[in-house]
């Protein structure tokens, strides 16, 4: 009967795919995509736990006795909104980063940052010596 858990396995797989994208990809947009997948997997987790076999959508109507659990739906409505808010903000950051660094690859940005740091340190030591 372990098959009865397949929904959770799907969730776990999606979750790990999302996390892997965040870890492995250097492109900032792809990271946000990964994050979105990660979050969506959580939505699926909640919604699938709300499902009742033979139930119907939680809108009261004549003749329906069994409903799926409405509470997770409410929670996930909120979570979706949070997700889009995060995505929007993240993308706004990506635009700004693109303007400031001229790239949206983590490698490049990291490289540029190291350069700036070296430069400031160099200036500091020069100032101290002179």
């Amino acid at each position: 009967m372990i098959i009865g858990l397949y929904n959770d396995w799907v969730v776990v797989v999606l979750m790990m795919i999302g996390l892997y994208i965040v870890i492995a990809h250097g492109n900032l947009i792809k990271k946000i995509v990964g994050l979105a997948i990660f979050q969506t997997s959580v939505f699926i987790l909640y919604i699938s736990m709300a499902k009742v076999e033979g139930g119907s959508a939680p809108i009261l109507a004549e003749g329906i006795k069994q409903f799926s659990n409405p509470l997770p739906h409410v929670l996930i409505l909120t979570a979706i909104v949070v997700g889009v808010a995060t995505t929007a903000l993240g993308l706004a950051l990506v635009i700004r980063i693109n303007e400031a660094y001229g790239s949206i690859e983590e490698e490049d940005i990291q490289h540029l940052d190291n350069q700036t740091q070296d430069e400031t340190e160099l200036q500091a030591t020069e100032g101290e010596q002179s």
Binding site: V22, L28, K31, L35, T86, L89, G90, L93, V94, R96, I97, A100, Y101, I109, D113
Partner: peptide, 9 residues
């Protein structure tokens, strides 16, 4: 910006 992005992730 970069720090904020990392923090966001």
């Amino acid at each position: 910006l970069w720090a904020s992005y990392q923090y966001l992730i």
